[in-house]
Every structure is written in C-alpha cells, then in structure tokens.
Amino acid sequence: MKTQRNLLKLFMIPVLMFGFGYLMVPIYDVFCDLTGINGKTGSITVAEASQQKKVEERLIKVEFVSSVNELGPWEFKPDQFSMMVHPGQAYHATYTAKNLLDKDAISQSVPSVAPSKAAEHFNKTECFCFTEQAFKANEERTMPLTFIIDPDVPDDVDTVTLSYTLFTKSIKS
C-alpha cells in the first residue's frame, strides 16, 4: 500500500511538470509585461492618458522603424521617420502598408520598443497592432497609432525607437 502511494506521488511529478512547462508561457508574458523586458509596450485608455501631466521642459525623440517578416508580399513604411515629443502628451503617427499580392490577405504587426527600460513607459491608446488588419488585393492603407510617453520615463532616455514587424497572418486563395 505504501509502495502504491509512493508510486502515485512519483507519477504525479512528471504530470505536474508537464503542466508547469505550459504554465511558463503565461508566467513569461506576465513577467515581461511587468518589467518591460522584450520591448513589450503598455496600452492605456484615452481617459487614463488625458489625466497624465505634460512635461514641458523635456523633449524625447521618437524614431519609427518598420520591417516585413520573411520577405512577405508587403510594402510597409512609417509616414514620419521621427518626432520630438513631450512626456505626458498624446501624439498621433501613421504607418502605411500595401498588399502587393493579387489576393486578399490579413496582416498582424508586432511592436517592439528600444531601449527596454523605456518600453514599459511607452503606452498606446490606439494602435493598428492591437488587431489583425485585413487588406484587399493590392490595397494600400494608412494605419493610425496614438501613443503617450509616461512622465516617469527614466531621465537618461532621450531617444526611443518604436519598431513594427509586419507578419502575414493568412492569404486568401
């Protein structure tokens, strides 16, 4: 009897550890979100953004970068290459993407912010990266984003680079 109880306990270890392997996925996400590692940016509501105080005396340069994953059939460019912004104020920027295929396609853009210590202070109230973007064949479209840099952003940050990678989610045949 004792042996069987021991065995049951022993077999539970691999089962639990298999589950733990999967549990590492949400743990990893939460950890990166909390610490801003991995360039994960925050998102806040418009109401929250309007409560932040504009810091007049500080100017931060925001650079916009784009890339297309695995040479997908896309043209993808920021419409402005950089902006000077005050922390605590919301700004509007746009990217333009074009589907180069003669077929409908769905894209997903994934953001990343460098340096990583600025990432958790870089918040977006609106972004084309929040949802999948459907494109008709050969359609070209300007996609908006509204961001606000938190007034708590570390003092030594004077340039923030925002990069988007555009992925092909699916292509309709």
């Binding site: 022993l10 298999f18 733990f20 392997g21």
Partner: peptide
C-alpha cells in the same frame, strides 16, 4: 532520477508546443 522526472516533462511540453 528526481532531476529526470522533473525536467523531461518540461522538454516534452516544449517540443509539443
């Protein structure tokens, strides 16, 4: 043996993903 039963399932999970 304890190391094995604690880590091989994690590898199994990773490759299943």
């Amino acid at each position: 043996a304890y190391l094995l039963i604690a880590t091989m399932p994690v590898l199994a999970g990773a490759v299943t993903m």
